[in-house]
């Protein structure tokens, strides 16, 4: 039972910092996206102000219709739809990254706020902690 206390997390100090996770890699070519997602899910237990930004190939993580059955890899894309239940509600995608890949909001499996490069720059400047995956 002791372990599960850990799992429940909470925020005994009451200090809330702004954490941004910047996702820049396509989902299956490297382990970073999955590891990054797990860090977000674990970190969510500690009641911080969490956001996720999808930049460069990171926008491919949110592409609808992923089906890994024939590759033998786990399709973890449905987990992005669970983020809301983990109180991770601020998802951003960079407009330039989407456009460069011919993607629009309609191609994505969760709704995100699409930001210009300049808007994302400003948002990053406001963070206490930025983690890249």
């Amino acid at each position: 039972m002791a372990d599960e206390t850990m799992e429940e997390g909470g925020n005994p100090t009451g200090v809330v910092k702004k954490f941004m996770y910047v996702n820049r890699r396509a989902p299956y070519g490297t382990v970073y996206p999955l590891e990054g997602l797990e860090v977000v899910l674990i970190g969510a237990a500690f009641e911080q102000d969490v956001s996720m930004a999808f930049v460069d190939d990171g926008v491919y993580q949110l592409k609808k219709g992923q089906d890994t059955a024939e590759t033998g890899m786990k399709n973890f894309s449905p987990a992005y739809r669970a983020l809301e239940m983990y109180d991770v509600e601020k998802l951003y995608a960079e407009k330039e990254s989407l456009e460069a890949r011919g993607l629009t909001q309609d191609d994505l499996l969760v709704s995100v706020e699409v930001l210009s490069t300049a808007e994302l720059t400003e948002l990053m400047e406001q963070q206490d902690v930025i983690l890249n995956y």
Binding site: E4, E7, E8, G9, L41, I42, A44, A45, K74, N75, F76, S77, P78, A79, R81, A82, M85, Y86
Partner: peptide, 8 residues
């Protein structure tokens, strides 16, 4: 969702 949820 393809994840086992945290207890919370």
């Amino acid at each position: 969702y393809q994840i086992a949820p945290a207890v919370r």
